[in-house]
């Protein structure tokens, strides 16, 4: 399956999860959530409040770079709401949705952004995720995404719990949508171009994959809006 189709499906699947009237935040290295928010605002969630790491509020970007911490995301904002402000908002219980990713995500929805191997003597030191540790316990819910779906990424147990999984709601991958239910990741839908065997073969823990519905392919309306927002295909940079 082409990465174009995978990226379209991931953006559409995430956008559908966003609700009109809520407040949503993303950080650095987040082109797919950024586009999902802009798509949702254009379609079913015009009253969603969009905040992000640049400090803009409901920006109207005309173009993108591969960075989501770029000044292009300031276009159209009438105020600056800093990162500290966004964290305070979450601490007050007023941030509805935060987007996070992880190098490893385990079956309980825990996220590892700290180390592969032992934390003190890691095989690979990862970028870190104090912001993730904070947001997973303060935001109303976490929507996670990862453009790589394999058994090294989706593991039985993460090597290190950077961010505890209790408030993880969904994880969208190139193959499926996971929902965290009763403390475990369950396959909610499988993307139209994949199937039960592929999802299980690329996941490092046992799943129930039979009789799971397919994720509806991106609609014409979704694709038209997405192509208008992102004609330069910045949605491919995470692949």
């Amino acid at each position: 399956m082409s990465v174009e189709e995978q990226s379209n499906m991931m953006v559409a699947a995430l956008a559908r999860l966003l609700r009109d009237g809520e407040t949503a935040f993303h950080g650095v290295a987040s082109p797919i959530p950024m586009l999902a928010i802009l798509l949702a605002q254009k379609l079913h969630a015009p009253n969603l409040t969009y905040i992000n790491i640049t400090g803009s509020v409901n920006p109207n970007p005309a173009s993108f770079t591969s960075s989501t911490a770029d000044p292009v995301l300031l276009r159209g904002t009438a105020s600056i709401f800093t990162l500290a402000d966004a964290f305070d908002l979450a601490a007050r219980g007023k941030l509805d949705t935060a987007f996070l990713s992880g190098v490893q995500i385990d079956k309980h929805g825990n996220i590892n952004m700290s180390a592969i191997g032992d934390y003190a003597k890691p095989k690979v030191r990862l970028p870190g995720g104090a912001g993730s540790a904070f947001l997973t316990e303060t935001a109303g819910r976490i929507l996670a995404w990862r453009t790589r779906h394999d058994s090294k990424t989706f593991v039985d147990r993460v090597n290190f719990i950077t961010a505890a999984g209790a408030r993880l709601d969904r994880v969208v991958t190139p193959l499926c949508v996971f929902a965290l239910r009763d403390g475990e990741l369950k396959v909610e839908s499988i993307h139209y171009y994949s199937g039960p065997q592929e999802v299980q073969a690329n996941t490092g823990f046992d799943l129930h994959v039979e009789d799971v519905p397919f994720t509806h392919p991106p609609t014409k309306q979704e694709m038209d809006a997405l192509n208008e927002i992102d004609p330069d295909m910045i949605r491919l940079v995470e692949f």
């Binding site: 979450a90 601490a91 997973t136 290190f160 961010a163 505890a164």
Partner: peptide
């Protein structure tokens, strides 16, 4: 600060 309690950090 709020949060972080469940983190291995």
């Amino acid at each position: 600060m709020a949060g972080v309690k469940g983190s291995g950090l």
